[in-house]
Structures are given as C-alpha cells and as structure tokens.
C-alpha cells in the first residue's frame, strides 16, 4: 500500500486531481462536479480555539439555566434542556428522550471538548499521536448529529406557540443558545479533516517538486474565494 500525497480524489465523483498549493483562504474545487476538494485552514486554526472555548461557556449557560418560564393562573414553571429530556423520559418516551439528549446535550459537548483537546495537541509540536487519529474520526462521525441551531429554532417556535395560551418569559438559556448557535456555525466550519493536510513546511516543498510526475491528472480549479468567515 502506497500513499499518493500529491494527488487528491473527489469524494463525490471520484475524479483524480493534482493537488495545488493553496493560498490564504483559498478553496480547491473539483472541475468535474464542483465539490470542495480542499480548503486552506491556516488562518482558521488560530481562531477556532478561542471560539471553541467561548462556545463552551455558552454551552454551560445554556444547560444550567432554564430555557423559558411559563406563568399560568399564578403557577410558574421553568424548564432547562435537561428538564425537557427528563420529562420525556418520565412519559416513557425513552427513544425520543435519548435522541434529544444526544443531539442537543451530549454530542455538542463531545464536539467542543474534542476540538479543544485536538487543537491544543496539534498546536504544541505539530505532531500527531495515534490516539488522536481515533479522536479526529469520532469528531467527524458525530458532527451531523450536533443540532444546536435546529434546537434554537425549535425553542423560538415553542416560545411563540405558548405566548397565545399563557405568559411566557425567555430564560437565560435561550439567549445562550442563540450565542452558541452563532459560535458553533463558525467553529464547525473548521473541518478536522484538514488537520491531516496541514503538513509541516518541509513536506510541502517535497509535494511541489513531485508534482511534475503526475501531469496526467487534471489540476483542480482554484476558486477565488478569499471570503473570510466572520465569527
């Protein structure tokens, strides 16, 4: 088995392209189907760690404080995210409780802690240990199941629905969820898969000299998107 570090294949149409050295924030796209092949993440790496730590603070607020309060004929009831999960469990809706728990509480936390650990580990020596490999793969596998932004929209819909039947007031967790969804949008734009491409500089040079060997493969189209994503 032999690696071909100077070639890249499209994961959507299987076309093989020559790898290009990307400039800042440049994106390489497949010339056959338009899928993203590679993205320059050097600027991003420094920004992701502070954003992830800020997300963790928001996450704690979103989970400790009530999402909303409800006043109905003098009786007041609050609920936290975990409270909603537990009341589903109390109604024997175990599958539903489990699904809500993993998509809004467990996987977001796992994602944040995983990213923090990963970013701290690679920022030191730039070397990757073997335990880290499994970690990166797990972060990627669980990524589609982190549903903070959908939960935020759900909380807003539930909130508006209740205003017609009772007095409702937003809890601190609702605002924190808003902040968390915004931060997450920026944090999740960092795909841990690109950690593999952040080769040390001396290897990058080797890639460039090896490029002539593979002139048979068409080179990827470089999209000129120097759009820096605002946090």
């Amino acid at each position: 088995m032999q690696q071909l570090p100077d070639l890249i294949a499209c994961k959507e149409c299987d076309a093989v392209h020559r790898r290009l050295t990307l400039g800042h924030n440049e994106v390489a796209r497949c010339s056959r189907c338009g899928a993203e092949l590679e993205r320059d993440m050097r600027d991003h790496v420094g920004r992701v760690l502070p954003l992830t730590i800020a997300s963790l603070f928001m996450y704690v607020i979103a989970n400790v404080f009530p999402v909303a309060g409800l006043e109905f004929h003098g009786a007041v009831n609050h609920t936290t995210l975990m409270g909603a999960v537990l009341s589903l469990g109390a109604e024997e809706m175990y599958l539903l409780a489990f699904l809500v728990f993993v998509t809004t509480i467990l996987f977001p936390l796992f994602q944040l802690l995983g990213l923090i650990y990963l970013l701290i580990s690679i920022s030191g020596t730039g070397r990757r240990s073997h335990g880290l490999n499994l970690w990166v793969r797990m972060i990627q596998t669980f990524r589609p199941w982190v549903m903070v932004e959908v939960l935020l929209l759900g909380a807003i819909v539930a909130f508006v629905k209740l205003t017609s039947m009772a007095t409702v007031f937003p809890g601190p967790a609702l605002w924190a969820l808003g902040g968390l969804a915004l931060l997450f949008a920026s944090v999740l734009s960092f795909n841990p898969r690109y950690i593999w491409h952040m080769a040390p500089p001396e290897r990058r040079k080797k890639l460039a000299t090896a490029a002539d060997r593979t002139s048979a493969a068409p080179s990827a189209e470089k999209a000129v998107t120097a759009k820096p994503e605002s946090p």
Binding site: S87, G154, L162
Partner: peptide, 17 residues
Amino acid sequence: SMLDVFVVSLLAGLVQI
C-alpha cells in the same frame, strides 16, 4: 426536520402545570 421534535420536547417539558 428535527425542528418539530425539539418543539414538542420543549413544550412537554415546559407545560407541566
């Protein structure tokens, strides 16, 4: 599409008077 799942879960957690 998970939207409605979250709406119902939050309502079930909140409206328990």
